[in-house]
Nucleic acid binder design. Structure first.
Lengths: 255, 255
DNA sequence: CATCTTCTCCTCATTTTTGAGGATGCGGAC
DNA sequence: GTCCGCATCCTCAAAAATGAGGAGAAGATG
């Protein structure tokens, strides 16, 4: 690739570069990059999906698209989407017409009942992957009254998409690390690993905080002997040799 | 700023953008960005310093500079460096001649005995800051037989420096978070917070692993009563009410 | 030298935890 | 219905940890 950039484009690219390192929330990053891309590529519509949703993230980020139409996509059209699976097979940014012929596409229910209703006509996608799977995508569209995307646009999207994918990968692995250190989640994982019952879970949650049998009993509203009874089976199931050992394995950031 | 970029420059900028998100080691990032900048700005020499050194990082990263001369900088010339303090006051990339007059500079020991020996003549610096202080810098030089840097070069360095600063800031705060979750360091911090003696530290290190008094005694090669004696003063100094409580506060990622 | 801290070890009493046996009632699965 | 897992409660005994009182030796500090 060897493309010159105008002053306007250079400015946008610098802004994108700063966003990539500065924004550390995947949803915000996708929104911001979307706005920059619409500007840079002179496009009209933007959408971005991630497949592994997390913390209240519905997965989709959209710009200039109709709410009710999007609801229809999420409930129906994503299941008869003829292009996204093909885009996902490309290792780089691709134009709609690189994955399906225009004639074929124009006859699909997906195009006529979904895309066309919002005015989407010319499209290109970038799908970011890591070793562990799909990270997220960038979907750029122009209306039918506009020019189609050129090879140069694909190159720009490709280069930005590469960095975008790395950034998403970083954010995801950061989130995973954080989740590994969240005590509640660690305790819950530990509990299911060892096949603990609901009540035994209640007990180790309090145990993990360093409480005594008597305190645990008070909090749970049962007698101390009941707590000891649960503890006995917890020791049996986990093979832990002492309360101290248990607390360490429940609280240690890395096991 | 409104600068057009050539195809070569665009490619380099995309590469820099990817480096910024992909490289998660501060030293490697500085080295890589240094090489890209030498290429992009057609410069001859690169140096980058960080002031808060960490994990075997000596602070300085250099390209095309003489080893023995650098040793002289670290031991002597950095203390009579007339320009770096002035560069650090600039909020953006600056040319040497923006912080000192050429005539003045050419008379300094710093220039004649240090820079000139390696052939450094035209220079520009970028110093990155965060709220907590200086993060790191980018120092770009050309030889005396070359053209001086133009306003356009400063603009490029400035834009890249902004993202570079954010990236360094992220890496540093990530490293700090990691350090907060390292059990050994947390135990050491906890110990000094509560004014524990060396032997008491040894005891809680083993205690934090969930060991029994007897085990601790064996490992330390003392009697159980000695261990209990140390534990007694640990309990007194820290105000902890039980061994379980102690283990939690020693192991909990966040206190 | 006297004083202080630290490390080492001790006793005695008490509380807490662990391990081993139980028993009862409840609700779902076969 | 019978069986099984679960939650609840019990006793008794042993092991571990806590709290309080020490004492002696080594070393640093005034």
């Amino acid at each position: 690739m060897l493309t010159t950039l105008s002053g306007r484009e250079t400015n946008l690219l610098f802004a994108i570069m700063e966003d990539m390192v500065a924004i550390r929330d995947a949803r915000k990053l996708r929104t911001q990059i979307g706005e920059r891309l619409l500007d840079l590529l002179e496009a009209d519509y933007f959408a971005s999906y991630v497949w592994t949703k997390s913390d209240g993230d519905t997965g989709g980020v959209y710009l200039n698209m109709d709410e009710s139409n999007l609801a229809a996509y999420e409930s129906h059209y994503q299941y008869c989407d003829p292009i996204t699976p093909r885009f996902r097979m490309c290792q780089r940014a691709a134009h709609v017409e690189q994955v399906i012929s225009r004639e074929q596409f124009d006859r699909t229910e997906f195009y006529n009942d979904f895309l066309a209703r919002d005015g989407l006509y010319h499209g290109m996608n970038y799908h970011a992957y890591s070793a562990s799977g799909h990270l997220g995508d960038l979907r750029i569209w122009r209306g039918g009254n506009r020019e189609t995307f050129q090879e140069r646009d694909l190159e720009l999207l490709d280069a930005i998409g590469a960095a975008f994918g790395k950034a998403l990968g970083n954010l995801r692995s950061d989130a995973e690390k954080l989740r590994d250190t969240d005590p509640r989640i660690r305790v819950a994982n530990w509990a299911s690993q060892h096949g603990l019952t609901a009540r035994e879970r209640d007990v180790i949650c309090l145990l993990a905080e360093g409480r005594r049998d008597r305190e645990i009993a008070t909090v749970l509203g049962v007698s101390v002997t009941t707590v000891r009874s649960h503890l006995k089976s917890i020791f049996q199931k986990s093979g832990a040799s002492s309360r101290a050992n248990l607390i360490v394995s429940l609280n240690a950031p890395v096991q």
